[in-house]
Amino acid sequence: MSRWEPNARGRLAQAALALYGERGYEKVTVAEIAARAGLTERTFFRHYADKREVLFDGSTRLQQTLTEAVAAAPAGRPPIELVGAAIAALGALFEADERREFARQRQAIVDKNPDLQERELVKLSRLGDALTDALHDHDVPVPAASLAAQVGIAVFRVTFVRWLDDPASRPFPELVRAAFEELAAMTHP
């Protein structure tokens, strides 16, 4: 193996996803992931703390996108509008390249493993906390910021599943708008 390999992180993620899909998350080792990617275990650990983190690699980007969208929004907008815009901004991450198929495979693996489901809930909780903080920094009082953020995370979860399974392959922001319109219709019949 050469000392430096291009796109090592991406190759490790693809190898892990393929192996998890073939044999199940629990039965795959870091050594096998590295070997499938044509890399060493040492290279794996330069990129990921453990084999679980391959599936949660984008969490920091999600959080950053949410908080930046809130920070960039004009002052005076209602908290739920800020949250809707922030959740819709995630579309830029999801629509890039072939993310939908990667996300489908990833979600199928997470859905089969209780430990990964727990890690997914931790990720969502952290996103909610970051969104709450961003709203508060945008002069939304804490109780309202927390409520709006938690509603936003619920909409995100529902929309993400819809996006994965959408037969029309509609863009993520379009599905976010539809979910918030559905929510508005439920709260203002």
Rank of each mutant, 00 (worst) to 15 (best):
E181M: 04
R23H: 07
E101F: 02
L124C: 01
R104S: 07
F56D: 04
W163P: 08
E68C: 01
A88D: 02
R106E: 12
L90K: 01
A69I: 02
L131D: 11
A31H: 12
M1Y: 06
D111Q: 11
L135D: 09
R162Q: 14
F180R: 07
N7M: 08
L121D: 14
E101W: 03
A15M: 07
P78N: 04
A92S: 06
A103K: 02
F94P: 00
G128F: 13
A31D: 13
R100N: 07
A145Y: 02
E120I: 00
L127Y: 03
L124E: 11
T40W: 08
P78F: 05
T65W: 07
A185T: 11
D129N: 12
A184T: 10
P114H: 10
L66K: 04
A85Q: 08
L93G: 06
V83H: 03
I109W: 04
T29K: 08
G38F: 05
A35Q: 15
R126F: 10
R46Q: 15
S125M: 05
A85I: 00
V83Y: 05
R11I: 02
A178R: 07
A145L: 04
R170M: 01
R119Q: 14
A108L: 10
A88Q: 02
A89V: 00
R23D: 03
F44Y: 12
Q150P: 01
A96Q: 11
K51E: 08
G84F: 00
L55F: 11
R77T: 00
F156V: 04
G21T: 07
R3E: 15
V158P: 00
E81W: 00
I153K: 12
V54G: 10
V28L: 04
D111Y: 00
P173Q: 10
A144C: 00
A69D: 05
L19C: 07
E26A: 15
A154M: 04
Q14L: 11
A15Q: 07
R177H: 11
H188C: 02
P78W: 05
E81I: 01
E120L: 14
K27D: 13
R100Q: 14
L175S: 08
A148T: 08
D165P: 00
R46T: 03
D111S: 08
A149Y: 09
P143R: 07
R157T: 13
F56N: 06
A69Y: 02
V70D: 03
V28I: 06
R9Q: 14
V142W: 14
